[in-house]
Structure formats: C-alpha cells, structure tokens
Amino acid sequence: MTAAVPSLSLRAKSTNARVRPYVFGALGLVLLALVWEAYKAVGPAEGVMIGDITVLPRTSDIAMPHLWTMWERLGEPVTSAAGSPALWFAVLQAAGFTLGIAAVGWLVGVSVGMLLAIVMQRFRTAESALLPWVVLSQTVPLIAIAPLVKRWGAQIEVGAFDWEDWMSVALIASYLAFFPVSIGALRGLGSPDKAHLELMHSYAAGWWSTLLRLRLPASVPYLLPALRLAAANAVIGTVVAEVSIGLRGGVGRMMVEFASAASGDPAKPWAPIFGAVLVGLIAAGVVIVLGLFVGRYRRGEVSA
C-alpha cells in the first residue's frame, strides 16, 4: 500500500549519508595539505618554542619538505645504485608485504575475538574469569611483548613447520586486533531483545540455533565498527612489530632505514609513511566493503 514511499525515501537518505563522510574525508586531507604548506611558508625557520620545548617544527626543507618534493621523490629511484627500482614501486611492494601480514593478523585476531566473545556469552563464569584478562592484555606495551614473541617463536619447530619472524609480527598484530572484536561481539551477542530471546525459547531453539539465527545477526551492527578498529590495530601492530622484531620487507622497517637518509634526502622518509597510510586506508576500505554485504543485518540501526 504505502510502504513503497518510506522505503524509497529511506534509501535516498542513506546514499546521501553514505557519500558524505568521504567528501568530508577528502576535504580534511586538502585542509591538512594547506596547513602544512601555509605553516612552512610563514612559520619561523627555527620552529616555535615555549621555553626549551619545541611545540611546532622547524620550517626548513629538511624538517618539512614541500609536498611536491615528496611527490617528485616518489618517481625517482630508491638509491643512486644502478638498477634501483623507483621509490613508489619499492614502497608499494613494502605496503603489499605489510598488508599481507596485517591481514593474517586481522583474521587470527577476529577469529580469536569472536571465539572468546561466544564463550563469554555462553558461560557467565567465563565472562567474569576472562574479561578482566582481555582488558588487561591491552595494557601490556607492544614493545615489551615483541621480543618475547620472537624468542618463544624461535623455539617452535614441529616437523617441517618452522616459526618465522613474519608469524611473530602477525601474532602481535592479532594481539591488538582481537580486543575490539571480543568486546564488540560480546555486546552484540547480548544485544537481542528479551522478546526475541523468548520467541526462540518458545520455538524450543537450542543455544546453537539461537546463536546462529538471533545472536550473531543481531551483533553485526556492533561487529562492524569493531572490525574496523581491529583492522586499524592490525596495521599499526604490524608496522610497529616489523620495527621491533626487525623484519625486513615491510613499510615499518623501511621507515627506519630511510630515516637515516633524512638529512641528505629529506623527502625520502615520507614515502614509507605514505605507504603505511595506504595500507591503513585499504584495510579500512575492505571492512567498509564487507559492511555493504551484510547491509540487511544493519536494518536494526535504521529503524527506531
């Protein structure tokens, strides 16, 4: 009868609302670039100091290269050695490497987080026993666990399987990724109304059916932001762990290597930073695309 009208207006509104964040995101980037160049143009050469503390950086070409210098640098070879690939290519390769490890870490983290949440949802006692540890786990600094993981990993050797450094990095990434998922999923699994739970009870549905048909679908609106956070955490975890474990091939190690070239080639260290940003954007994008596939589970968000 009249149902077509609200559904249409609903859809129109949601596309508008979907595009807006990207527009604002792009505007934010432009603004950032403008602020960078503006400060470089008018800021004092020695930076802004309060007492002995530098609150704003020097504006020299070494401390703050022009954006277009950074851009041009990407097109030039990594080093002056013959056969050196273009910087953009090397960065892209490193970004791909980092993205791969972050993806493994994300998958492991999401699986562990989901599993923990389901166990905690199922058993009240498990929640009170596990939840404090889950929260506590995130207070251990990454720098502290990286060498530990590497050392423990080195002792693992099962038949043909050999623990490699990239696995340590992925494990650390998963360590950061599982947390938001376990918390988000725990809230989501507990989110169904009493009425819906009683309906399932009246159908004599067991715990497993209720999980599959009610709790999991109901937790999607809670899970998506958690997955996004987990993706960001996995990327950060991977980059930092690459540095602290000393794994070559990714943007983390590249940042350290290129930083030493900063004085002679100030635009070069920025390239792996852009690479890391790219990895973060791709990771976030994948989760957004994932969200499009489960659109119908987010209807609860729209209807009041």
Binding site: H196, R296, R299
Partner: peptide, 8 residues
C-alpha cells in the same frame, strides 16, 4: 503486543 519480527 510487539510484533517482534527479526529486522534482518
């Protein structure tokens, strides 16, 4: 009283 349909 509430229909209690699953929104998804």
């Amino acid at each position: 009283q509430q229909a209690g349909l699953l929104p998804w």
